[in-house]
Design a protein around this nucleic acid. Sequence first.
DNA 1: GTTGCTGATGATACACCATATCATTTTTTC
DNA 2: GAAAAAATGATATGGTGTATCATCAGCAAC
Lengths: 153, 153
Amino acid sequence: MSRVQAAIDHAENSCKSRGVKLTNKRRQVLSGLLQSNKAKSAYELADYCKDKFGQKLPAMSVYRILEFLEEERLVHKLNLANKYIACSHITCDHDHGISQFLICANCQTVKEITVKKSTMNTLKRSVEGAGFDLVSPQMELNCLCHDCKNQAA
Amino acid sequence: MSRVQAAIDHAENSCKSRGVKLTNKRRQVLSGLLQSNKAKSAYELADYCKDKFGQKLPAMSVYRILEFLEEERLVHKLNLANKYIACSHITCDHDHGISQFLICANCQTVKEITVKKSTMNTLKRSVEGAGFDLVSPQMELNCLCHDCKNQAA
DNA sequence: GTTGCTGATGATACACCATATCATTTTTTC
DNA sequence: GAAAAAATGATATGGTGTATCATCAGCAAC
Ligand SMILES: [Zn+2]
Ligand SMILES: [Zn+2]
Ligand SMILES: [Zn+2]
Ligand SMILES: [Zn+2]
C-alpha cells in the first residue's frame, strides 16, 4: 500500500473514532496534500482535484475542507505563505505538540520539526523579558533545504 | 521636538548620506508608521495619508514607497500579517542585526527584539539537524502583550 | 528658457487569496 | 419517507499585491 493510501486510511480511522466523516472530497484534498512535500494553496488544491479526479471543486469548499482537516489535526496552515501542508505525524497515534516549519525559500519544500523543549523555553524567556507572552509558538522559518543549497554551490 | 519628528529628521540625514531622497510622500508614509507602535498595511497607510495630509495616495505608490523605506532600513515588513512597522532602531547610527518581532494577537502592538546569539545558534543547530539551513532568521511570533494579558485575566 | 534625461508618482487593469451569503444536495434520524 | 442536519455548490465581494503604461517634477546641458 502506498504511503499516501496508508495515511488516508489512518486518517479515516481517526475521523471515525472522533465521530466525524472523512468524505470523498475531503479525502481528495487530503491526498493532494499528501502526495507532495510542498505546501499548496487552496486554489492549487482545487486545481489538483479537478485534474486528478475530474471534479470541479469551488474554492469555498476547499477552504471549508481545509478548515475541517485542520480541526482534525490532519493538516497545518502555514500563515507565512498562506498555504497548507499535511501533518507529518498523520500516521502517529499520539497527539503531537507545537511544530515548527522549515520552508525552503527556493523549492518550497516544507519540513515539520519539533525543536527541543529547552530551546523553546529559552526563547520564551527572551520574549517574556520584552514584556510579551508567547501564545502560539508555531514558527515558520525561511530556510534553504540541502538539495537547493548544494545546487546553488 | 517630538519623537516622530526626531526620527524623521534622522531618517532624512541618513538618506542624504546614502545619496537618496526622502521625499514628501515618503516622509508622510514613514510618519504614519512612526506615530503608532502597531503594524499597518499598505492600504491603511494610504488612508492615513489621505486623512492626515489630504493627499490621495494610490496603493501602488505606497508599495513603492514601503519598498524604498525597507531598502533604506527604515521600516520592516512583517510577512505574517502583511503589514509594515517602523524600525525601532531608526535613530541609532549602527546597523542592527536580524530582528525578531513579537506581535500581540489581540491589539497588534509589535515589539522588535534581538534574541541572544546563543539562543539563535541553538535554534540554528536544530534546523540544520533537520537538513535545512536557516537563511533569514527573522521570526515573527504570535504573542500577547502584557497589557492585553492582564486585561484578559 | 527650452530640451532632454532621470527619478518619482499616478492611473488602470488584473491576479490571487479569502470570506459572506444563500441555494442545493446528500446523509441521518426518526 | 419526512424532517433535520451536514456537506457542498454558486455567486458576489473585499483585501492584497503586481504589471504596465502614462505623467510629473527636478535638474543638467546647451
Ligand atoms: Zn503536525
Ligand atoms: Zn529546496
Ligand atoms: Zn529594525
Ligand atoms: Zn496587546
